[in-house]
């Protein structure tokens, strides 16, 4: 996250930290963010996993304010299922259908348990997004500037505004790379944004008084760069897909 502020995971209790295991015995390294959408399922971005698509490669934590260290109240999970959107694709500039689902379970076969630092996030109503200009929160352990190579140890969050598809499709923005299955969001002053390493994390908007997972951090040109907003997978366009894999009986909250 460029700009913004450091925060405690209690402010974003649905935030999941996803690590990729090392083959050589070194500790797992931070890979991407995610969001707990039901007790046993985390939503993230397909592009995080597409080059190493085996579920055994990953470990997921909930309740972490500080990455790669022990956080009181955290929960650690293996990935029981790793599902990519079948129409995921890498385009010239960005991605399409950039969404993945991870079924999580502890070593004793448990799903997530609610606490001050672990909570699910609501899914948006079908095709019901917050209006253009809404303030939405982003969260992650991604880089604080671009180009950078260090990821902060502590969780950050910031606020960006939803911008219209018309604005985002302008030639000097992203032109035809933008379709209606993504959302664009940016800071009016181009001072804060998601960045490399925030992929898969949440774009949380308030819809009818409920905090809702409206977007999944997907791509952007640079970070906090003028006329280059952040591009997010539009979750309200994938509700049927999500439900087809998770179903309603698993505590999804629409």
């Amino acid at each position: 996250i460029v700009g913004g502020e450091f925060t405690n995971v209690e402010n974003q209790p649905w935030f999941a930290t996803i690590y990729q295991k090392n083959s050589g015995g070194a500790p797992p390294f931070f890979k991407c963010g995610g969001s707990l959408i039901s007790p046993c399922w985390v939503a993230s971005a397909a592009h995080c996993f597409i080059h190493h698509p085996k579920k055994e490669n990953y470990v997921v934590y909930l309740g972490q304010s500080k990455r790669n260290s022990y956080n009181p109240g955290e929960m650690k999970f293996e990935v029981e299922q790793l599902i990519f959107h079948e129409d995921f694709s890498e385009e010239s500039l960005g991605y399409r259908n950039d969404i993945a689902l991870l079924k999580i379970r502890t070593s004793t076969g448990q799903c997530a348990q609610p606490s001050r630092s672990i909570q699910t996030i609501c899914l948006p109503p079908r095709f019901g997004d917050a209006p253009v200009g809404s303030d939405c929160e982003i969260t992650g352990f991604g880089q604080e500037s671009h180009p950078d190579y260090l990821f902060p140890m502590n969780l950050k969050m910031s606020v960006v505004k939803l911008i219209s598809h018309e604005e985002c499709k302008q030639p000097h923005y992203y032109g035809s790379e933008i379709n209606y299955k993504v959302l664009c969001a940016a800071d009016p002053e181009w001072k804060t944004d998601a960045c490399h390493g925030d992929s898969g994390g949440p774009l949380i908007c308030n819809i009818d008084g409920r905090l809702t997972l409206s977007g999944i951090v997907s791509w952007g040109e640079g970070c906090a760069k003028k006329n280059k907003p952040g591009v997010y997978t539009r979750v309200s366009s994938f509700l049927r897909w999500i439900q087809s894999h998770i179903g309603e009986e698993n505590g999804l909250a629409f």
Binding site: E10, S38, P39, Q113, S115, Q119, T120, I121, G251, A253
Partner: peptide, 22 residues
């Protein structure tokens, strides 16, 4: 049909644990 925000197993989607104001 929007299910209630209180879904199974004690989760309340989108709710943050507000700090008690001492």
């Amino acid at each position: 049909k929007p299910s209630s925000a209180v879904d199974q197993q004690g989760f309340q989607c989108g709710q943050k644990a507000l700090r008690p104001r001492f």
